[in-house]
Simulated assay, not measured.
Amino acid sequence: MTDRDGRPSGLTVARWVGIGSLLGVVVAGALFPFAGARRATDTSFALGVLLFGFGVATWGGAVGFGDSMSAVQSHLGGESGWSREGARQAFAVLTWVGAGWAGTAVAASILFVGL
């Protein structure tokens, strides 16, 4: 038998992008009465891109330094349950949520503010 492919399926990615889109709508909608359409969508976009950038940067760190972290944990005798694969999945989720959030903020900005 072959090992199961650990990469996320298209449905999994779509689910996390959808959750990020929902967050983008909620944040922009919550800010709209106080800040107006332009500032609400700009702020929502900034938060989405911040989450996206953090996810990409930390995912890269988990890929690059995952074996080193595992070696340090085994050397120190730590039993935190941290694994390279778990860290990659967690930061990939942050990346996809941030992408959905930022994309929705862009769409809302075009829709409500214009080009």
Results as ranks from 00 to 15, higher is better:
residue 71 A to W: 15
residue 56 V to K: 03
residue 49 V to I: 12
residue 19 I to M: 06
residue 10 G to A: 11
residue 68 S to R: 15
residue 82 W to E: 08
residue 62 A to Y: 05
residue 47 L to K: 00
residue 74 S to I: 13
residue 4 R to C: 12
residue 51 L to Y: 01
residue 1 M to Y: 14
residue 3 D to K: 13
residue 87 A to N: 10
residue 112 F to R: 10
residue 48 G to F: 00
residue 81 G to H: 02
residue 33 P to K: 04
residue 83 S to N: 04
residue 63 V to E: 14
residue 37 A to M: 05
residue 92 A to Y: 04
residue 84 R to A: 11
residue 11 L to I: 08
residue 92 A to L: 10
residue 19 I to Q: 04
residue 92 A to S: 08
residue 111 L to G: 10
residue 47 L to G: 04
residue 103 G to I: 00
residue 96 W to K: 03
residue 82 W to R: 07
residue 57 A to G: 12
residue 78 G to V: 15
residue 28 A to L: 02
residue 58 T to F: 15
residue 35 A to P: 10
residue 6 G to V: 11
residue 76 L to H: 11
residue 20 G to K: 01
residue 35 A to Y: 14
residue 73 Q to T: 04
residue 104 T to C: 00
residue 62 A to L: 03
residue 104 T to H: 00
residue 56 V to Y: 10
residue 6 G to M: 12
residue 60 G to Q: 06
residue 57 A to P: 07
residue 103 G to M: 01
residue 43 T to A: 12
residue 63 V to Y: 14
residue 29 G to I: 03
residue 94 L to Y: 13
residue 37 A to V: 06
residue 24 G to V: 00
residue 75 H to Y: 15
residue 107 A to T: 04
residue 8 P to C: 03
residue 101 W to F: 15
residue 89 Q to D: 14
residue 52 F to L: 15
residue 24 G to A: 02
residue 68 S to Q: 14
residue 14 A to V: 06
residue 96 W to N: 11
residue 72 V to P: 02
residue 2 T to S: 14
residue 81 G to M: 02
residue 101 W to S: 07
residue 11 L to Q: 10
residue 53 G to I: 08
residue 44 S to P: 03
residue 1 M to L: 12
residue 1 M to K: 12
residue 35 A to S: 12
residue 63 V to H: 12
residue 85 E to H: 11
residue 75 H to V: 12
residue 96 W to R: 05
residue 31 L to W: 02
residue 13 V to Q: 02
residue 9 S to A: 11
residue 53 G to E: 13
residue 89 Q to V: 13
residue 83 S to T: 11
residue 49 V to T: 07
residue 94 L to S: 12
residue 22 L to A: 15
residue 28 A to N: 02
residue 103 G to V: 00
residue 19 I to T: 06
residue 51 L to I: 02
residue 81 G to N: 01
residue 110 I to D: 13
residue 55 G to C: 00
residue 6 G to D: 13
residue 114 G to D: 05
residue 60 G to H: 09
residue 66 G to E: 02
residue 23 L to R: 00
residue 40 A to D: 02
residue 18 G to D: 09
residue 89 Q to N: 13
residue 100 G to Q: 01
residue 55 G to A: 00
residue 47 L to Y: 04
residue 59 W to K: 15
residue 48 G to M: 02
residue 44 S to Q: 01
residue 5 D to C: 03
residue 84 R to I: 04
residue 77 G to R: 05
residue 57 A to C: 10
residue 90 A to P: 03
residue 23 L to H: 03
residue 27 V to Y: 04
residue 101 W to L: 11
residue 73 Q to Y: 14
residue 110 I to Q: 14
residue 92 A to T: 04
residue 52 F to D: 13
residue 41 T to W: 01
residue 99 A to R: 01
residue 66 G to T: 00
residue 82 W to N: 06
residue 108 A to D: 07
residue 38 R to H: 12
residue 88 R to Y: 08
residue 88 R to A: 13
residue 80 S to E: 11
residue 76 L to C: 09
residue 21 S to M: 09
residue 82 W to Q: 07
residue 102 A to I: 00
residue 74 S to G: 06
